Amino acid sequence: MRKIKFDINQQLKEMTEHRTDDLSIACYKTTISEHVQGYIPLHWHDELQFVAVVQGKVLFHINEQQVAVSQGNGLFINSGIMHMAENFSMEEQGMYLCLNVAPQSLVSAELYMKYVHPYVTATNLPFLMIEKSSSWGEQVLGNITAVRQEIEEQAPYYELNVAAAVLEIWKGLIKNGYFLEHNETEMIRSRRIKQMLMWIHQNYTEPLRLEDIAKVGQLSRAETCRNFKLILRTTPMQYVLDYRIRKSTELLRFSQHSVTEIAYEVGFNSTSYFIEQFRKMMKRTPLQYRREEQKGRQDEEKEIRS
């Protein structure tokens, strides 16, 4: 059997792209012994991670802590947290489902600062055990399995089912009453980020500069970039670019406007640059995306009629 190489960069960030074609979500079955090193090496990633151990017992190392997770139980690992995993013993092989979710994809941009950011940035929430003996834990573990099955089968509307299951997982976590610790500096930073994001959402169709965004947050350009990197794991201008692309997908699906018209409507001043950036983010051209979406809707309508 060919061994799996775990791809990380010099900063120990995992380089795997955790997404399906349409969702910033991925769910893998990981067998520890199949990796080149015989374990999952120390790494981190921007995505939130939900683990469900389906075989054996797995030992996770998280921020210098060791957490043993037995079959039937699981673990939540927060965004940006260093971790590794290995078999708890040589006698049994550990296997687990690993659900990775981009924090920004959990809820709309308008709700991110209220329902996601406080948990992603909490200083006392690097990980959380998910035990099947609790009602929340049982629900989370069941939803991880359901997401894996939905992604594998890709039946009609599977994306909606996956998004709903992931949102239910997150809703359960934040309703669990977990006490979060934050310092005052971080709270001020959150308010400023919220102001800047709201301004971007209101003005993304216009030419935007880093100086404009920084002014809204009453910060220097360097401090604005640092805060975006810390909180959103991206740069201000990359966030603007990604937001424009996301808005363009709505127009491609639901309007008859040409690609050039859509490019200008969402703030690009070059059709070729829009197509280039769209392909980089969506792994297809705008026209290919539109055709696939139209075909998908037609297939769904045929299925409904039949």
Rank of each mutant, 00 (worst) to 15 (best):
I193L: 15
K194V: 08
K194P: 02
K194W: 13
Q195S: 15
Q195N: 15
M196F: 09
M196L: 11
L197Q: 09
L197K: 05
L197H: 02
M198T: 14
M198L: 12
W199P: 00
W199N: 00
W199Y: 11
W199D: 01
I200Y: 02
I200H: 05
I200W: 03
H201I: 04
H201L: 10
H201M: 10
H201N: 12
Q202C: 07
T205K: 12
E206W: 07
P207S: 04
L208T: 05
L208K: 04
R209I: 08
R209K: 14
R209Y: 11
R209V: 10
L210Q: 02
L210E: 04
L210N: 00
E211W: 00
D212F: 06
D212H: 10
I213N: 01
A214P: 03
A214H: 01
A214E: 02
A214N: 02
A214G: 06
K215R: 14
V216S: 03
V216W: 01
V216G: 02
V216M: 05
V216N: 03
V216Q: 06
Q218L: 13
Q218T: 13
Q218A: 14
L219E: 04
L219I: 04
L219C: 06
L219F: 06
S220N: 06
S220Y: 05
R221Y: 04
E223A: 13
E223D: 10
E223H: 13
E223Y: 12
T224C: 12
T224K: 05
C225K: 15
R226V: 08
R226M: 14
R226A: 15
R226W: 11
R226N: 13
N227K: 12
N227A: 14
F228K: 01
K229E: 14
K229C: 12
L230S: 11
I231R: 08
I231D: 09
I231Y: 13
I231E: 09
L232K: 08
T235C: 05
P236S: 02
P236M: 04
P236D: 02
M237G: 04
M237S: 07
Q238D: 15
Q238P: 05
Q238C: 10
Q238I: 08
Y239W: 13
Y239P: 01
Y239G: 00
V240Q: 00
V240K: 00
V240D: 01
V240P: 00
L241P: 01
L241A: 09
D242A: 11
Y243V: 09
Y243A: 08
R244M: 06
R244G: 07
I245L: 11
I245A: 01
I245S: 01
R246V: 14
R246C: 14
K247L: 09
K247T: 07
K247I: 10
S248R: 08
S248P: 03
T249L: 07
